[in-house]
Design a protein around this nucleic acid. Structure first.
Length: 211
DNA sequence: CTCCCGATAT
DNA sequence: ATATCAGGAG
């Protein structure tokens, strides 16, 4: 077992800094969050929100998205990048929702990760933030980087990092924790130039201060 | 491991 | 000008 007392200090500090951490994606229901997260890869949340505002007003349901031609859908999601892949994933995913789940999203992580274009990260994020079902911790690039710098995990793969993080706090806090690490990774503990000066976690962080 | 697209940091 | 960045599929 690792130094869980030290890890607790960092988790507590994170809670003080981001007590109400939530996603910056705008959504009205679990279906909308699912599509938003699929579109969010390598794209700012602000841009995803611009695209989904139009997309969801025209297509509130999976059935409505399936009624679009592939080309129309591609044009609508184009600004988010990887638009052919994303349009394909969104369409395939909507098809599954209609065929297997009556046009709604499933309720377990196991079912989620079987959806086309949905891996553990997307599944945990949607389940936790839209349904309050905390079955996992969404490990994206921010969570990975921040966890490693803070010394909360020395694992390399998202699955192992997730397992390490799950040990640190109770299930009902998993979604908050992921959200907080993401916010911290975006605002302070950035990939290129981490702002260690301004970091509220610095007193407990083993990561070497660059400047 | 490569591919996918385009925004943004360097 | 160019390298980096993200998540999932193949």
């Amino acid at each position: 077992m690792r130094d869980s007392a030290a890890a607790d200090k960092r988790v507590e500090a994170l809670r003080r800094l981001y007590p109400e951490a939530s996603l910056e994606l705008v959504f009205d229901n679990p279906f909308q969050l699912l599509i938003s997260v699929i579109l969010s890869a390598q794209c700012t949340d602000a841009r995803v929100n611009q695209v989904t505002r139009v997309l969801f007003s025209r297509c509130p349901t999976p059935q409505d998205i399936l009624a679009l031609s592939q080309e129309e859908l591609e044009e609508m999601v184009r600004p988010t990048g990887f638009f052919r892949n994303k349009a394909k994933a969104v369409r395939a995913c909507c098809q599954e929702l209609v065929d297997r789940y009556g046009g709604r999203v499933p309720g377990t992580l196991e079912e989620f990760v079987r959806l086309p274009g949905v891996g553990r990260k997307t599944a945990a994020m949607v389940l936790g933030n839209a349904l309050g079902v905390h079955e996992g911790i969404a490990v994206d690039t921010h969570v990975k980087r921040v966890s490693q710098r803070l010394g909360l995990s020395s694992a390399k793969t998202p699955e192992k990092i997730e397992a390490d993080l799950m040990q640190l706090l109770p299930r009902e806090d998993w979604t908050w924790f992921s959200n907080a690490l993401i916010l911290h990774g975006r605002r302070v503990c950035k990939a290129r130039k981490p702002d260690c000066q301004a970091c509220g976690l610095a007193p407990w962080c083993p990561y070497p201060d660059q400047a």
